[in-house]
Computed example of a mutant assay.
Amino acid sequence: MVSFGRRLARVFTFVFIVATSAACGTTSHNMAGGETRLAFVAEPTQTATRDAGATPPLSFGGLAGRTVTVDSVSDLRLRKHEVALTFDDGPVPGRTHAVLDALDKAGVKATFLMVGQMAHAYPRLVREVAMRGHTIGTHTQSHANLTQVSTPNAEAQINSGMKNVSDALVPTRYRAAPFFRFPYLASTPRQRRQLAARGITVIDADIDSKDYFQSSTEQLRQRTLARVEARGSGIILMHDIHARTGKMLPALLADLKERGYKVVRLVPGGRAENLLVSSLTHNMSAGYPAPKTMRN
Rank of each mutant, 00 (worst) to 15 (best):
M1L: 14
M1S: 12
G5T: 12
R6A: 03
R7H: 07
R7S: 02
R10Q: 05
V11K: 05
F12Q: 06
F12A: 01
I17C: 05
A19W: 05
T20Y: 12
S21V: 11
C24G: 14
S28R: 12
N30M: 14
A32D: 12
G33H: 14
G33A: 13
F40M: 04
V41N: 05
A42F: 13
P44S: 10
T45Y: 11
Q46L: 14
T47L: 13
T49D: 11
A54L: 01
P57F: 09
L58S: 07
F60V: 06
G61Q: 09
A64C: 13
R66S: 14
D71H: 12
D71R: 08
S72Q: 03
R79Y: 11
H81M: 08
E82L: 01
D89V: 08
G90I: 04
G90A: 09
T96Q: 09
A102S: 15
L103M: 01
L103R: 01
A106T: 01
A110R: 07
F112L: 00
L113V: 09
L113F: 11
G116C: 12
A121D: 04
P123W: 01
P123D: 06
P123H: 06
A130W: 03
R132A: 09
G133M: 00
T135K: 11
G137H: 05
S142Q: 08
H143L: 04
H143Q: 12
H143W: 04
N145K: 11
L146I: 03
T147R: 03
S150G: 11
S150A: 06
A154E: 05
A154H: 01
E155I: 12
A156I: 04
I158V: 15
N159A: 15
V165T: 07
S166E: 05
D167Q: 12
L169P: 07
Y174C: 03
R181T: 00
P183N: 14
A186Y: 10
G199F: 07
G199T: 11
T201V: 10
D204T: 14
A205F: 13
D208H: 13
D208E: 13
Q214F: 15
L220S: 00
L220K: 02
L220Q: 06
R221A: 06
R227T: 02
R231D: 11
R231Y: 10
G232V: 09
S233V: 08
S233F: 10
G234K: 02
I236D: 03
M238W: 02
M238F: 02
I241A: 07
R244G: 05
T245W: 07
T245D: 08
T245G: 01
A251M: 10
L253G: 03
L256Q: 09
R259P: 03
Y261G: 01
K262R: 15
V263G: 00
G269Y: 08
G270S: 15
A272E: 08
A272G: 00
A272D: 05
L275R: 03
L275V: 06
L276T: 08
S278R: 00
G287C: 06
